[in-house]
């Protein structure tokens, strides 16, 4: 029987929640924190895994070791798979995002986003835009995970570029606003990444 693992040990600021695996053609493929994988093999260069969820599902990748010397290899993988389920509610008029068991957060919502049920996709890649450096500073409420945006897929409509993300208002998105006293996005990110609806989505978001 296949044994499952997940990407772990990537929460430091060097990785900021992402680990690049290499395809057979040496193409970099980013996997987010807690991505479920199965281990096919190990070799001196790394661990050969199969991605078991998300957009990269079924890809065979080589993951590097976190630490490596002549005698010892330390893996990024862990057996602590994400299992919890949470619900998110967005109150459009009040501009409040409610995350079950975590709290309420101030948001900015684009007017074009319609009420209804959305699912949050497992992130596929970091969004490498030029962002305000303050967003990364956790001393003033920023987060190392600001490059992780969660794509929202409407249960009714087609796939659009609607994201739940942190920072300053952007068109067509739900933007979680800064709170200088604590890192809002760290809380939301860590909560969402530990949740799964299925092997495609993290959680559901209801907009009312």
């Amino acid at each position: 029987m296949r044994k499952f693992f997940c990407i772990n040990d990537v929460l430091d600021r060097e990785h900021s929640g992402w680990l690049n695996g290499l395809t057979e053609d040496e193409i970099k493929t980013p996997l987010c924190y807690k991505t479920k994988v199965s281990l096919n093999n190990k070799n001196p260069n790394g661990e050969i895994i199969r991605v078991e969820e998300g957009i990269h599902k079924e890809k065979i990748l080589t993951l590097p070791y976190k630490y490596k010397d002549k005698k010892t290899n330390i893996s990024y993988l862990s057996t602590e798979l994400p299992a919890s389920k949470i619900s998110l509610k967005l109150f459009r008029n009040k501009k409040i995002l409610f995350v079950e068991n975590v709290g309420k957060f101030n948001v900015e919502v684009d007017k074009k986003i319609v009420k209804g049920k959305y699912n949050l996709l497992i992130p596929e890649r970091p969004i490498l835009k030029i962002l305000n450096p303050e967003y990364f500073s956790e001393k003033i409420g920023g987060s190392r995970f600001v490059e992780t945006w969660f794509r929202m897929i409407s249960e009714k409509g087609k796939q659009e570029d609607i994201f739940l993300h942190y920072g300053s208002y952007s068109k067509g998105c739900v933007t979680v606003l800064n709170n200088r006293s604590f890192s809002v996005w760290n809380k939301i990110y860590l909560t969402l990444m530990s949740c799964r609806l299925n092997n495609k989505y993290l959680a559901a978001l209801l907009i009312t």
């Binding site: 430091d12 630490y67 010397d69 330390i74």
Partner: peptide, 18 residues
């Protein structure tokens, strides 16, 4: 500061971290 910390972290040997 992050780079200094990162360099120090990555200079630790795997056997020591284990």
């Amino acid at each position: 500061e992050d780079i200094i910390i990162e360099k120090s972290k990555n200079s630790l040997s795997a056997s020591l971290v284990k």
